[in-house]
Design a protein around this nucleic acid. Structure first.
Length: 478
RNA sequence: GCCCCCUUCGUCUAAUGGUCAGGACGUCAGGUUUUCAACCUGAAAACAGGGGUUCGAUCCCCCUAGGGGGCGCCA
């Protein structure tokens, strides 16, 4: 019965689901899937001052967007406070905890003194042995766990290996605040036990917590879960991930135009590998993922590689799906409403038609959309610098002679257009590029675009001829 | 300050007590080409430093340096 693996993702809702949390969730999810187990979701909202409803929603949304599902209903830690309190009382009754009357000021002072004297700034255990009769009046005590003083606490970590802490370095932590609310380390132990969690996969910033939690598990006579502490993700400069370079919520990645499959693929390769495999399907990830293959060193976040991966997934995603994703993305963009109005039904149709050429050239959905902007541009087009240079006198003359030939093309298909333009280039003794570039500039306002015959076909006869005509006329009036 | 962890091309990583230290992204050079991409070919690019152990160390041990994490009545 207890053979089945149960992992959990346990974010605290004090902000969005950041990229490190997303990877932790992914690893928990993959391990659960790999072993045929479950992944539970627990919202660690015991810090009432900082937890927000919005953050909970953001985290749930982020997980859904990443397509990482969890088993059962999310457990809100706050709702279990009574149970946690009960265990604290039990620990107290069994002599594994004690009341501490130290005030915040006293603790502050103690820490400063310890630091000054070069000792670990932990609690000195003053109230561990003091008689309750000495308790000052008017002060509600906190309850502290009576941590072992001698010996060591050993964690057999699936990623970090055997990690040993001297018990003298681990102080008596508060398990129940003076206001009667449980603290993190107590809640985690009780919940992991009650939820039958078999594997705890989390960031290695929790490594020392694992030692403290192990002590509590032992005091309670409970079996500890298997631990796997994954190294953190750093910014490109090797320093802690800041908002500037990637500690963004996953919704920011969505807004930048990344695909969930690409982000998953990128994240799974940060700290974990399977031989030379780089691009892998979700099925392959599940099949191959294993705790033992997780590395022990921190990885730097690299947007360039993410974008490369995203480009790959863009190219292999069906056109219709990309259009759907764009439709939901556009309203969230700056000026999204206006953009959506400009695109319109007709624009979405053109977009899908032009998609094969567009997705080949983009790293993100946002870039793709920008590359596609010529599709919904209104005449007369504005031309960028490079396009203007192509549309010099010679370029416009070429267009002027080409225009009548194009007007005769029937039907207006890519094949017919290509044949006509190539024939024109031949007849004029011009290289195809000399014709294609002015054409491109007149049709898109840029020097870069999808294949020119695609552009012509998608834009349609009327619009294409009008845009070319605009340039020809400009040459006459100039 | 104390405790814990980490260190292979710029980045993500593989591998091994004896290898030309492999792959991917990026970079550079070619090819292809209507532009840009994509794609193909090729190149440059790493075992942090110092001691051991060993016939032989990137790999095992120690030290140093550098980086990271933790040290709350936060989670």
């Amino acid at each position: 019965m207890s053979e089945k693996v149960i992992t959990r993702f346990a974010p605290s809702p004090t902000g969005y689901l950041h990229i490190g949390g997303a990877r932790t969730a992914l690893f928990n999810w993959l391990y659960a899937k790999h072993t045929g187990g479950k992944m539970l979701l627990r919202i660690e909202d015991t810090d009432r001052a900082r937890s927000t409803e919005g953050a909970i929603l953001a985290i749930l949304d982020g997980l859904r967007w990443l397509e990482l599902d969890w088993d059962g209903e999310p457990v809100y830690q706050l709702t279990r406070a009574e149970r946690h309190r009960g265990i604290a009382e039990q620990l107290l009754a069994e002599g594994n905890a004690y009341r501490c009357y130290a005030t915040p000021e006293e603790l502050q002072e103690m820490r400063e003194r310890a630091r000054a004297e070069g000792r670990a700034p932990g609690y000195d255990g003053n109230w561990r042995h003091r008689d309750p009769s000495e308790a000052p009046t008017g002060i509600e005590p906190a309850i502290r766990f009576k941590a072992p003083r001698e010996g060591e606490t050993v964690i057999e970590d699936r990623v970090q290996g055997r990690v040993t802490f001297a018990n003298k370095d681990l102080d008596d932590l508060v398990i129940l605040r003076s206001d009667g609310t449980p603290t993190y380390n107590l809640s985690v132990v009780v919940d992991d036990h009650d939820m039958d969690i078999t594997h705890v996969i989390r960031g290695d910033d929790h490594l020392t917590n694992a030692a403290r939690q192990t002590q509590i598990f032992k005091a309670l006579g409970w079996k500890t879960p298997v631990y796997a502490h994954v190294p953190l993700i750093h910014g490109p400069d090797g320093a802690k991930l800041s908002k500037r370079h990637g500690a963004l919520g996953v919704e920011a990645y969505r807004a930048m135009g990344y695909l969930p499959a690409a982000l998953r693929n990128y994240l799974v390769r940060l700290g974990w590998s399977h031989g030379d495999a780089e691009i892998m399907s979700t099925e392959e990830m599940i099949e191959w993922f294993d705790l033992d293959a997780i590395g022990r060193s921190a990885a730097r976040f690299d947007f360039v590689k993410l974008e490369n991966l995203n480009g790959h997934y863009l190219r292999t995603t069906p056109d219709k799906e990309i259009v759907e994703r764009l439709k939901s993305l556009v309203p969230e963009l700056p000026d999204g409403a206006a953009l959506a109005a400009r695109i319109g039904e007709d624009g979405w149709r053109k977009l899908e038609q032009a998609m094969p050429g567009l997705k080949e050239r983009a790293g993100t959905l946002v870039e793709l959309l920008d590359n596609a902007s010529f599709l919904f541009a209104k005449r007369p087009l504005t031309t960028d610098e490079m396009a203007s240079r192509v549309l010099d006198e010679g370029g416009r003359e070429t267009l002027a002679t080409l225009l009548p030939r194009l007007e005769k093309v029937e039907p207006w298909t890519q094949e017919a257009l290509e044949a006509a333009v190539r024939q024109f280039a031949d007849d004029s003794g011009l290289k195809l590029g000399k014709v294609a570039q002015p054409l491109r500039a007149s049709l898109t306002g840029r020097s870069i675009s999808p294949g020119i015959f695609d552009v012509l076909a998608v834009l349609g006869r009327r619009e294409s001829l009008a845009r070319i005509g605009d340039q020809v006329h400009a040459s006459k009036t100039a």
